[in-house]
């Protein structure tokens, strides 16, 4: 009975505050107590323990992105900010490669995980240095949208240039040898939608070629990011539908670095360039801008290199 008055009081708050209060009371204390040893516990909504292999997919997220599918390529739809961010993703990949003196190979094999409607996958497939792009997403509707849009560009229909698969990463066949792996694996705006990021990241690494880069982007879990992504973007400006973001699943760059440091197969040499981050901020009217230091409180890119 003791929890009832508290619950009632929380429920009487306005929605956005209620979310915050709820997240604060449930999620954060646990994280605050054990910041270095966050366990990325798997509370998969898929309780069917008999189905191997376990999927990283969060089914609520799948249905949310299903609803988003139709507006994916609408220039004024809710994916507008992702479209605007896309050029920076390429800039960041170049930054990662340049930290090692550029790419050694002329043509690169890309794997885009959580490709959605194909914003990044299409753009990677158009690059002159793309050998092939494989793009996967567990939501069938977004893959349908992506395939439909692919048909509007003859270049993307060239054999092997761009292949969409409606599967989670666990179902992607492993490369026959490490050398057959991908040069670039991208997980843009994905890990904040995954319930067990650690297990998810570990399932990706076998697909990465030695010397290749795992790059991604996400949002740091701070008051600022709650204010901008949950409160402003979802509630006030309604730039994206409510429920697009799950603030408690946002990840700090130092948590990622910590995770990478515990992996033997990643290039985390002290003082080396094997771990890269870049903070970006959306400035209305100007677009996305790189702001150094902003990775600690807002949207940021991360890249980690697999040891050769």
């Amino acid at each position: 009975m003791a929890s009832n008055p508290l619950a009632r009081r929380i429920l009487s708050l306005p929605t956005q505050l209620r979310c915050l209060a709820l997240e604060r009371s449930l999620a954060t204390p646990a994280l605050r107590q054990l910041p270095a040893s966050r366990t990325y516990a798997t509370y998969n909504t898929n309780f069917n323990t008999t189905s191997p292999p376990q999927s990283s997919v969060n089914h609520e997220e799948v249905s949310h992105f299903n609803a988003l599918a139709s507006s994916w390529w609408d220039p004024h739809g809710s994916s507008r900010l992702l479209h605007l961010m896309n050029p920076l993703r390429h800039d960041f990949i170049r930054k990662c490669a340049n930290s090692q003196g550029g790419f050694q190979q002329e043509k690169l094999k890309f794997l885009d995980i959580g490709c959605g409607g194909g914003i990044f996958a299409e753009s990677a497939a158009r690059l002159p240095n793309a050998a092939s792009v494989t793009a996967i997403d567990p939501t069938p509707e977004v893959i349908a949208v992506a395939r439909k849009h692919q048909r509007t560009d003859p270049l993307l229909l060239e054999p092997n240039r761009l292949t969409y698969l409606n599967i989670p990463i666990e179902q992607l066949p492993l490369p026959s040898s490490p050398e057959q792996g991908f040069d670039i694996i991208s997980i843009f705006e994905v890990i904040e939608h995954i319930q067990s990021p650690s297990a998810f990241l570990e399932s990706i690494l076998p697909h990465l070629k030695p010397g290749g880069w795992l790059v991604g982007s996400t949002i740091a879990r701070t008051n600022v990011s709650w204010f901008t992504t949950k409160f402003m973007a979802e509630e006030v400006l309604k730039m994206v539908p409510r429920g697009t973001h799950e603030w408690s699943q946002y990840i700090q760059p130092q948590e990622l670095r910590e995770w990478a440091r515990r992996r033997q197969d990643l290039d985390m040499t002290v003082g080396g360039n094997g771990f890269q981050t870049m903070g970006v901020v959306y400035v209305p009217g100007l677009g996305w801008k790189e702001v150094s230091g902003s990775e600690d409180w807002g949207n940021y890119f991360f890249g980690v290199r697999k040891l050769e």
């Binding site: 050029p87 800039d91 299409e122 753009s123 497939a125 158009r126 793309a130």
Partner: peptide, 14 residues
């Protein structure tokens, strides 16, 4: 040229 460097469809509004 910016579009080509970033893999954009050069006919798109982006």
């Amino acid at each position: 040229s910016r579009g080509v460097e970033h893999g954009m469809d050069i006919g798109s509004c982006w």
